[in-house]
Structure formats: structure tokens, C-alpha cells
């Protein structure tokens, strides 16, 4: 039988319409060995304070909804366990670098616009219509993009990225990793459309290879690698564009 212990969860609270500034509120939460931080928050909402607002859905690190800062580290609260912090208290805050909508829920608008800007879908070449037939890929071709396709848009990488924190014009880790995911796919022919995003100052050149994005990624996507592979692509494009036919520069 799991023994019940008690931990103090300190939550950042902020209701933009009524509060002047964010503040912290502490709750004493009974927990068992297998309880996650998310379950701790759910306990608060169900038994202690129904006004606490946070996002969650799958409880199993698939949906990417429950990202938050736990003791200043961006984590998915569903795969972070209260037992690892007890007997110390934990501090739960909304993901860093994003505006707060309410309590732990952040405004994702900026990321969604950036995601859209990288054309995150397969763009087949014209005249390449397989009809009813499937498109075949070799295992090697699948491996080229599979790792980058694991992104669940949880935004932990944006909360971890000091460059995004300094300048939010930076396209950022997840959007650039997804850009690379489609560029690396043998079925895609949309590279030229995505090159403008890569080549911009706010594209791959906003990154200084701190690497925290890859450290915190719960799906091991390795955005830092994707971005730095595209620094090479952008450099080639910069110098070799003069060899391309006019109109494609």
C-alpha cells in the first residue's frame, strides 16, 4: 500500500482582469508514491480551490498540454512526480517567456503563428500525384525525419530557450524542428518555400546553440540539432544562390 504524505505546492496565481500582479498561493496536498505534479494540481482543483486554472488532457506525455515550470525547470507536470521533491515544497509556475492567460495557462498565440509560418505539412511537387497508391519510403528515408516528427508542441523548449526569452521574434526551437521535419521528408518538395524562414535573422540565426531545448524536450526531438543542420543549409544557400538560375534566389 502506498503511504500518504503531504507536500506543499506553491502555485503562481494570476487573473489579469482582477489581479494587478501575479502572486503565489500555497496548498498542502496529500500525495502517494505514484502521484504526479498534475495529479497534485487536480487534487487542489477538486478539493481545495476550484478557481485554480491549468491545462491538461492525456496524463501520459502525449498531448503536450500540461507543460509548466516546476522549481524553474520546464516540465510536463504529468511525468514529474511529487515524490522526487518531498519533503521540500515545490513551486509551480506557467511556462516562462509566454504571456499568462490565467494562473498556469499561457497564451500560445505567438507560437501558433510561428508554427504556421514554417508550412508544417507535406508539400508534394507538382506532377507528383500517386493517385490511390501509397507513397513508398525506405526505412532510411523514414529515419531522416521520424525523430523530429515526435514533437507534441508542448512548448517546454520555448520556456527553456534563453534566446527566445531575450527576443521573442526568434522563430524558436519547436517551429524550426518541425520545419526541418518536413524538409527532411523524401515526399516533400516545399524546401524553397521554407528557406525564407530559415535564412532570416529570426530564423536559424537567432539560435546560439545553447542546447537547452534538446535538454528539456520530453520526446527527445533534439531541436538544437535540427536548427544547426539548417545553419549549414542556410550558409550553402547564402553563398551558392548566385549559381542558381535567376528568379530562384
Amino acid at each position: 500500500m502506498s503511504q500518504t504524505r503531504t507536500i506543499v505546492i506553491e502555485c503562481l496565481r494570476f487573473h489579469p482582469e482582477t489581479d494587478e500582479a501575479p502572486y503565489y498561493q500555497s496548498y498542502e496536498v496529500p500525495f502517494t508514491e505514484e502521484m504526479s505534479v498534475l495529479e497534485g494540481l487536480q487534487y487542489i482543483k477538486d478539493h481545495l480551490d476550484g478557481t485554480l486554472t491549468f491545462r491538461w488532457s492525456c496524463r501520459m506525455a502525449i498531448c503536450g498540454s500540461c507543460g509548466c515550470m516546476v522549481n524553474d525547470e520546464p516540465v510536463l507536470s504529468c511525468q514529474t512526480f511529487l515524490r522526487d521533491y518531498h519533503p521540500a515544497r515545490i513551486r509551480v509556475e506557467p511556462l516562462a517567456h509566454f504571456p499568462i492567460l490565467r494562473d498556469l495557462a499561457i497564451d500560445q498565440t505567438d507560437f501558433l503563428a510561428k508554427l504556421e509560418s514554417v508550412h508544417p505539412y507535406l508539400i508534394p511537387s507538382t506532377g507528383d500525384d500517386p493517385g490511390d497508391q501509397p507513397r513508398h519510403q525506405t526505412p532510411d528515408q523514414v529515419q531522416d525525419y521520424l525523430g523530429y516528427a515526435q514533437c507534441i508542441n508542448c512548448l517546454l523548449c520555448y520556456a527553456a530557450c534563453p534566446q527566445y526569452g531575450l527576443n521573442d521574434a526568434f522563430t524558436g526551437p519547436a517551429a524550426l524542428a518541425l520545419l526541418h521535419r518536413y524538409n527532411a521528408d523524401s515526399r516533400d518538395a516545399g524546401k524553397d518555400q521554407r528557406m525564407e524562414v530559415i535564412n532570416a535573422e529570426e530564423g536559424v540565426w537567432g539560435c546560439t546553440l545553447v542546447g537547452e531545448c534538446s535538454e528539456v524536450c520530453p520526446k527527445h526531438v533534439d531541436p538544437a540539432r535540427a536548427i544547426n543542420q539548417n545553419k549549414i543549409a542556410s550558409t550553402q544557400d547564402y553563398f551558392l544562390r548566385f549559381l542558381k538560375p535567376r528568379g530562384r534566389r
Binding site: E196, V197, A200, E201, E202, G203, W205, S234, T235, Y238
Partner: peptide
């Protein structure tokens, strides 16, 4: 269209 960064020159060096 977003302006192209000249960073490739300095990044290569």
C-alpha cells in the same frame, strides 16, 4: 518577405 541574414559570412568565419 523577411530579409535574409548576413550571418552566414560571420558564422563561417
Amino acid at each position: 518577405m523577411k530579409p535574409r541574414s548576413h550571418e552566414p559570412i560571420f558564422w563561417s568565419l
